[in-house]
Design a protein around this nucleic acid. Structure first.
Lengths: 205, 205
DNA sequence: GCCAATATAAACTGAATAGTTCAGAATCGA
DNA sequence: TCGATTCTGAACTATTCAGTTTATATTGGC
């Protein structure tokens, strides 16, 4: 991954370039985005852009990694460990569902899926800083609850995977394929309730 | 969707073209595949190809639709309605998981996700003939079992969505991002068991 | 105010590639 | 065998786009 050596990170317009690239890549994907578009969006000349990034791929990778890190930071941040599992799970599921349905998460998912054939490192990087990261946070919480005797789980990792998977039911697939793009709170709550009910039916004490 | 009107489906080499297109699109995605490549793979001249399909997009759509139909046909075909729910669900889950992890299903998913921004009809078509189709079949079975008193389900559609989502736990995400590409029967069975256990815990009588 | 680093605009190269055209060859039904 | 349909190959157009170049302008530290 460390072709980063060849990226020049100093200079007045570095972050401008990155921000322009972010916008355009997120809107158009990798192939869809032209370097001219990016330069225009960044209010920067093409020559300047190329003085920072040796090529389009590296620029894209940089954007993707930055976005994934930002993503991981946001999602599942405020687990209040003193509430009951049902409460915690409900709060967390609501966050997860809302996040998964955001334009932002959807678009980066699309781009990463689309390009992970061409850039295997991208797939890995996304997985590590996205889904895997979430799964770890969730596992920690579940482990805690099990130790407290609040939940009864044989395989904590698997349970965490199942939980986040349940959060994708119905709406997420529809969102990914552009069938539906607006989601009411009621729709989200419905998914959340069903996810939590199912989880508790299986792992509740 | 019926730009299909403009596709000529008769002629000696129609299926040859389609098969070549299938191979190349599945390997390279939409942008990645060049029409020259496809013509070569199909053992057909470019002119012939264009005599069947007015443009690359329609050719792609045709391939995707054909593949989805084939997909829907295969998956969840042999539900033996006389077994217990646990048995039926286990068989079905095994089929679903294996199918979801096949190169074939993964590749078509990737391509459809990648291109559904540019071709909204493609996303819709994939969703309809893929996930939605599966969900309907599953719903029918669940409805039957509920009527028989074998299961207790408030929202059959939602339960069907949850079930297929549970089949994606752990392995599928890893597959989509190319983290893992070989899956042992034991790994598949693990997912299946956990999916069925969870489902039965929630909806069993 | 000067110098060195940094940025700009715009034109250019070179490579891919979608889609067209057409004269002639292969194929097939009758 | 004949005539019509279908296919071929190869050359051609036109476009898009990554990446380069160059001559000029801006900026900021000293």
């Amino acid at each position: 991954m460390n072709q980063s050596a060849t990226i020049v990170r100093t200079g007045r317009k570095f972050s401008q370039v990155l921000e322009g690239a972010r916008q355009v890549f997120m809107r158009d994907g990798f192939e869809g985005a032209s370097v001219d578009d990016i330069a225009r969006a960044a209010n920067v000349s093409k020559a300047t852009l190329y003085s920072y990034f040796p090529d389009k791929r590296l620029l894209f990778m940089e954007v993707a990694e930055t976005e994934c890190a930002r993503m991981a930071e946001r999602a599942m941040d405020d687990i209040n460990k003193n509430e009951t599992p049902r409460e915690v799970l409900t709060t967390t599921a609501t966050q997860i569902v809302s996040f998964l349905l955001s334009d932002f998460a959807l678009q980066i998912f699309r781009v990463c899926v689309a390009e992970s054939d061409r850039f295997p490192e991208l797939g890995r990087s996304f997985y590590t800083s996205g889904p895997e990261m979430g799964q770890k946070r969730m596992s920690e919480y579940l482990r805690l609850s099990v130790d407290r005797g609040e939940l009864k789980i044989d395989d904590v990792k698997m349970a965490a995977e199942q939980f986040s998977e349940l959060c994708k039911a119905k709406l997420w697939t529809r969102a990914v394929f552009g069938i539906q793009s607006e989601f009411s709170q009621a729709e989200i709550d419905e998914i959340v309730t069903h996810a939590v009910d199912m989880f508790m039916a299986r792992y509740g004490v």
